[in-house]
Amino acid sequence: MAASVLIGAWVAAGLTLCMFSFLYKDNPFFRFGEHLYVGISMGYTIVRIYYDVMVKSLYTPVIQEGNMWLLVAAFLGLLVLTRFIPKVSWLSRISFAVIVGFGSGVAIPRIISSNILQQVQGTLKPILGNAGQSLFGMAQFNALLILIGVVTVLIYFFFSIEHKGPIQVAARIGIYFLMINFGAGFGYTVMARMSLLIGRFDDLILFGSRDYGYASVVLLGMIAFGLFMWERRSSVSPGPDQDPRNADSNARNEYPPQ
């Protein structure tokens, strides 16, 4: 096994355990991992912007292909940075005007086409069914249910008329459709997170094997010992480098609040 893979396994296992230590409570290991994540993300973003935007989309087309129009974009980009100089910070409005104006204009016809007309078409067309298909099949029932759902949800969000009588009934049906949507969305999100969790545990188990020098086991012991020492130290004295968030997190950990 290459040394870089072995070191990588130890680093990944250590950082994973540092982050998981938050399940116990907010602690220095987690805060280290959290800040490392912010720093590495920032560094990664800077490198990606430099190579993907500045070099690939700006420098190369201007210098090698002579596309001088991109200098306008560079100029507008530089105007964004005038936000750092309060006296001329208003110049950044020009760039924001271009971004927001063009974004709004481009969005209108595309939203009408894909988010409204196509959705209405997708809702109404299946009700009519295909040639040779029964008009009273399961597909037609589902299509009718979708139509009822779309209409009632829209009625629920329509506040220009008072929700009384049949409108109120329709709005209440719309609420049930929305609740199922939120429940399904929630269940789906939880399962996606669980899938990530399984992935992390899978890595930890792999890195805990003999091939990787029992990295997960050794690091788990070290972090547990570190947490024990940190608890002992903080119970004796708060310490000068105590993060002020600690006070809040300790208060939050007491449930119900005292």
């Binding site: 959705q119 249910l145 139509l147 829209l154 199922i180």
Partner: peptide, 13 residues
């Protein structure tokens, strides 16, 4: 079915 109906309603809104 049900989720699609609600999602379409939200999307159109």
């Amino acid at each position: 079915v049900v989720n699609t109906a609600a999602r379409r309603g939200i999307l159109i809104g």
